[in-house]
Write a protein that binds this DNA or RNA. Structure first.
Lengths: 252, 252
DNA sequence: TAAAAACCTGCATAAACCTGCATAAATATA
DNA sequence: TATATTTATGCAGGTTTATGCAGGTTTTTA
């Protein structure tokens, strides 16, 4: 198998990134696509000639830059992007990875390297859709009965299917975490699915933005001890994270 | 047994690889098929002439790989909306309805009455997502292994699940229809799924925009006789539809 | 206003490309 | 059956494309 990409693949990736983020940085593309500065510049030049984007100093912006409702909460989305970036480093080629739903997970899927060749398993419809943009990954959807609130499959079927799976990694988009109680949720259906995912994985990663640290919801998903790694947008030595560090979690 | 492959076998292999990965590299194919560089290049050239792939420097990409710029074309959406409106009338409360993928079906989902209370079953991820906006409907997704080109689940699992289902209605988003040959498709995976859906339904509805009338693609989904209702944006007495009327189809 | 970052121009090179020809197998024809 | 024709493939050679690098210029930013 080759290591390099076709020029067209890079172009498709750049356009896709533009559709998602409305802008791309040359330097970022250089590292993510692992090519020289010149190649990226030439790519952007060609795409600009084809009228597919607008070249600017340092990168490019989307042609239909509708800065209206797309990124409503820029503040939160910056944090989620930071988390997503950190999370990506944990995934290696040929891994089997479980994903829940949620915007943080979705951001992570967007940040995945186009070179990554792995298998992703998820019960979330929006995440499955997003994963399909990635040229090299296999996508497995689990479940039949879709839950409209959670935008994912829930119920016995999901749990049953998960019981036949052994994954390397599981990323949990987390709504509430607290050093004593662990991860909690407000919906029973979601708790049921997340518990089954935790059972099916070797390593459990919780992704959570700082504002949800030290909050509790009615139903427990898992205790702190079951989590291997906690990812937030904060620096690992931030004092807010101290209680989690004390419990032995690895922080990113 | 022969050590080498027939040209047709190589071609089939290349197309299959393209369906799975969206791209192929000449060098990779050379080593895997154990033929010279020239042979592979000629293979790709011929397949490109037949319109089955797009040749690029270093290999080839799948036709549907160019989904980048073509996403938001409002073109034909008026026609599709007309079709969608007509189709909606066929769905009554408490029905079980099968849906394929495609933009026409998606338009129909948008046009559904918010009062409708029915069960929808689909292997298409975008359609499932769209259906979740509807407050009163139940949504069942079928399949696990997702096909990136078709943006839907394909394979044995889908067929198996469909064999346990009995639906009232099946709406087929149709790419090519002709009064003699019936409905045809270009991708085997999709044909397989559509056939299984047809087996699982009482009544079959084909939705097709006029520009695709009287076109044929390589693989047959079903004969004209298996279709109950044909919906286009044209008036039912349009002369373009006469051949279908003569075959006994009900027209909307 | 100076340093850093991004940009450009031109050049080098390897990989992929093409054209034309040779050969052997498959197929058609006498 | 023997011979001619077509087809599929490989090879030699010359050309083009994609990409990185060197060195210099412009733009941004602190």
């Amino acid at each position: 198998m080759q290591v390099f990409m076709l020029k067209q693949e890079r172009h498709a990736f750049i356009i896709q990134q533009l559709n998602v983020h409305n802008r791309v940085y040359s330097t970022d593309l250089q590292t993510r696509l692992d090519v020289s500065e010149d190649t990226i510049r030439r790519d952007l030049q060609e795409l600009a000639e084809d009228g597919l984007l607008i070249k600017v100093h340092g990168g490019a912006v989307s042609k239909s830059f509708h800065f209206t409702l797309s990124n409503n909460n820029v503040y939160a989305s910056k944090a989620k992007q930071d988390i997503a970036r950190k999370a990506c480093h944990l995934i290696a080629n040929d891994m089997v990875v479980l994903l829940t739903g949620g915007t943080t997970i979705r951001e992570m899927v967007n940040e995945l390297s186009p070179m990554l060749k792995a298998t992703f398993i998820t019960p979330s419809i929006p995440i499955a859709l997003e994963l399909m943009n990635h040229p090299r990954v296999d996508v497995i959807f689990i479940g039949n009965q879709l839950n409209k609130n959670a935008q994912m499959a829930t119920g016995a079927e999901v749990v049953k299917m998960l019981s036949t799976i052994r994954a390397d990694l599981c990323f949990l988009g987390t709504n509430a975490i607290e050093a004593g109680v662990g991860i909690t949720e407000s919906s029973w259906e979601v708790v049921e699915v997340k518990r089954a995912m935790i059972k099916a994985t070797d390593k459990l990663v919780s992704m959570v933005i700082a504002e949800k640290l030290n909050t509790i919801q009615p139903m427990q998903v898992c205790g702190i001890g079951e989590i291997d790694t906690l990812i937030t947008e904060l620096a690992p030595d931030d004092e807010l994270l101290a209680p989690y560090h004390n419990k032995g979690l690895s922080l990113l």
